[in-house]
Nucleic acid binder design. Structure first.
Lengths: 217, 217
DNA sequence: ACGGCTATGTGAAAAGCTTCACAAAAGAAG
DNA sequence: CTTCTTTTGTGAAGCTTTTCACATAGCCGT
């Protein structure tokens, strides 16, 4: 709580869950919520909730719980979603097109304001009010549009080239949907969204008969 | 390696990464690969790779490395993707439409063979050769079509109702894209795909100035 | 105003996961 | 056939994360 402390990735991911739960609680007019209730809603333990929050401060009141509205604001501040981020999306294929309209992003302050593709049939077309730019102008337009985050939704085979360009344009945060690992310099944050992974986990769980708790060699 | 052992979620997720890397290596005609090279390709440590694989057997040859083709086959068996799974998709909105055409799923054996929606304008329409069914027939059609896995891509507000129906139809594996936690019985596997989470992680990393290593209270 | 009750915040213990480090195995070279 | 080199497989150590458990704080009812 005081001084400096390393925060784990899991804790940050759980903050996203708390934020989501608090949004629902706020809409349902709850004033306060206990760690127990928050835990129940996101399938965690009360101790985990309290420990996570304690890394960032003392937001609760003993005997009462946490103030819903205020805690939500605090978490938004911690996650950096108490502001808007200017986002570009590269690759207007299946996934890319879906993401342009994905309301969850804008709801959290991630505003997609630029689109890029290399397909002449797509360049110039309009998606949700945004005209698709030619990927050849990527670097120039990213910097002109003051983009802070780029989402990559291109085929795996070209993803590394695109990412190199993005990095050269000075972008420091990338979300990659291509199913491939990508190299970026140490000062660039990159995160991967691998949609097959969870299906594979389900498959593993099913094959390793009912429980996923044990496995035979 | 011998007997029974709990396998962590992280290990299973890394198996997905190894499988992906091995697919590339196979295509590039590599016969063998070392833990060092596999680790380099997926940004892990060699020890991690060896330990993960050792939970399931001894697949390598000392001094040489792992046989690419055979290891890939072994991992496919462990993950249960050495077969096809019959998958249904509920909710043909932005995300749902994208997933119908998402090739990575079919490549891993997840065949989407049924589509459902509640919108009269979508029911009866054809997506990649599959006619969208009325969600009111969900239970009957899931069982008639021998579906094993259901992907949920409906609005958060109705996701729990849909999932209840799916569970009642006897389905034991669910992949949920709705940004909400869902209750299922203990014998049903459910996994969540939360696409905002990684963006929020990026945001956190950026706000907590360059390093994400330290945070002030 | 005070006692009871509830739920936080947090050190400490426990559990879980990753890295280390090395013996052992196997191909390669001469 | 023997030595050298390489890289696996794996206990043990080290580190991280989660859970426990309880003192403490603060609301609520009387």
């Amino acid at each position: 709580m005081l001084g400096k402390k390393r925060i784990s990735e899991s804790t940050i991911h759980r903050l996203s869950l708390y934020y989501r739960a608090l949004s629902v609680l706020e809409k349902d007019n709850y004033d306060t919520v206990s760690s127990k209730e928050l835990a129940r809603r996101e399938k965690l333990t009360p101790a985990q909730v309290r420990k996570d929050l304690s890394f960032f401060g003392s937001f609760g009141t003993r005997g009462l719980g946490y103030p819903v509205k205020e805690l939500k604001t605090q978490i938004a501040g911690i996650l950096g979603i108490d502001r808007t981020w200017r986002v570009a999306l590269v690759g207007i294929g299946n996934i890319g097109s879906a993401l342009v309209s994905y309301k969850e992003f804008s709801r959290q302050g991630f505003q997609i304001v630029k689109l890029f593709d290399n397909d002449q049939r797509k360049i110039g077309s309009n998606h949700k009010g945004i005209v698709v730019s030619d990927i050849r102008n990527l670097q120039q337009e990213l910097s002109d549009a003051k983009i802070e985050v780029v989402i990559v939704a291109v085929p795996a085979t070209v993803a590394q080239y695109i990412v190199d360009d993005i990095v050269n344009a000075g972008i420091k945060a990338i979300l990659n949907f291509a199913p491939v690992n990508l190299k970026v310099p140490d000062d660039v944050y990159i995160r991967h969204e691998n949609m097959s992974m969870e299906l594979e986990y389900l498959s593993f769980a099913m094959v390793n008969n009912h429980a996923q708790k044990r496995v035979r060699a």
